[in-house]
Amino acid sequence: MRAILIAAALLTAAAPTVQALDAAAAQTAQASAPASAFERDRQSILAQAGQYRVHFDMRENVSFRADYDPLEEKLSGGSEIVRIVYDKGDRISLQHILVMEHEGQVMVIKHWRHDWVYQPQTVLTYAGPNQWTLTPVPADQRAGAWSQTVWQTDDSPRYGGVGHWTYDNGLSAWTSNATWRPLARRDAVRNPVYDRYLGTNRHILTPDGWVHIQDNMKMSGKAGGEPVAIVQEDVINTYDRSTSYSPQAGDDYWTKTQGFWSAVRDAWDAAIATHDGIQLQEIGETGSVTGTPLMDLAQQIADGEATEAEAVAKARVLITEATTPR
């Protein structure tokens, strides 16, 4: 329930060791030229960790149907920390955690996660409603490339793509190939005429942090056959470094729950490996059918109402039942 409340607020409006890792990553990214292109890319990815004020700017621009009028621009924002889950050299994982104040109380929600893999053999891609598949990456496309796989609040899949970091014109930027994506909550809860996006993703470092730019073609495949374009949307999410709020509540939550979430990631990975992809029911409010129960289990650990072992056992059952083909 807390997750739904904070998601609605966004639509309308740890530990010192973890902080030290993020600070070190940011300093490394600003250091002199790295020894290799691979290391330069790594530094660019790690530079996205830190403490931020985030501004969300979403606007539908061009309609491709006579009977569809683009939505009004939607602006919102929040406070978000990005922590390094792991850095294994050619595999890096970054976790976003919202830290927001509401009516005098600090509210924390585990937000999205993005995993980066150097020269990936496969990438998990969205294949249409309730379906994700492991897609091979041809050798000529993976040379020097990084995949980015984005996961929802409960670590269930969202989308994946492959692209290269470039350093032209003074910009450190990663650009994905065009990727299919499920509807974001802001659209899914409205039951719109479109049911998926075809999007291109860019991550660009800025002097104060970084920006996440999405070029989304909102598509409809409801009639069967090839999806048709409805409207184009730009999403610009700007992450500006900030010390104007305390990240402590978010880091405390992550310290208490990161063992649970590690086991949850392993359970999702096992399901994906077993089925060469995954079938999972999408839910507008929470992203997936597992969204609320998994988030609730983590909160029970954080509140001292359940042990990690108890919560992990329940989570594994939930994921197995949700991903078993019927």
Score class of each variant (00 low, 15 high):
A66G: 15
A66R: 13
D67T: 05
Y68E: 03
Y68M: 03
D69T: 14
D69M: 13
D69E: 15
D69A: 14
D69I: 13
L71W: 09
L71Y: 13
E72Y: 08
E72W: 11
E73S: 13
E73K: 15
E73F: 10
E73L: 09
K74E: 13
K74I: 15
K74A: 15
L75F: 12
L75E: 06
S76A: 09
S76Y: 06
S76L: 06
S76E: 02
S76G: 11
G77R: 00
G78H: 02
G78R: 03
G78K: 01
G78P: 06
G78V: 03
S79Y: 10
I81G: 06
I81E: 00
I81M: 05
V82I: 10
V82P: 05
V82D: 07
R83L: 11
R83W: 06
V85I: 06
V85M: 00
V85Q: 01
V85T: 05
V85L: 00
V85H: 01
V85P: 08
Y86N: 06
D87R: 02
D87P: 03
K88I: 07
K88P: 04
K88N: 14
G89Q: 04
D90V: 12
R91P: 00
S93E: 04
S93T: 04
S93C: 06
S93W: 01
S93A: 06
L94R: 00
Q95L: 02
Q95T: 04
H96S: 15
H96G: 12
H96Y: 12
I97Y: 08
L98T: 14
L98V: 15
L98N: 12
E101P: 12
H102W: 11
H102S: 13
Q105P: 05
V106D: 14
V106T: 15
V106K: 14
V106N: 11
M107H: 15
M107Y: 11
M107E: 14
M107F: 12
M107I: 11
M107S: 14
V108C: 09
V108T: 09
V108M: 05
K110P: 09
H111S: 13
R113W: 03
H114L: 04
H114M: 07
D115I: 01
W116T: 10
V117H: 12
Y118N: 13
Y118L: 11
Y118G: 11
Q119C: 10
Q119L: 03
Q119P: 13
Q119F: 08
Q119V: 10
P120S: 02
P120E: 02
T122R: 05
V123Q: 03
V123I: 07
V123E: 07
L124I: 06
L124V: 07
L124H: 06
T125E: 08
T125K: 09
Y126P: 08
Y126R: 03
Y126N: 04
Y126S: 05
A127I: 05
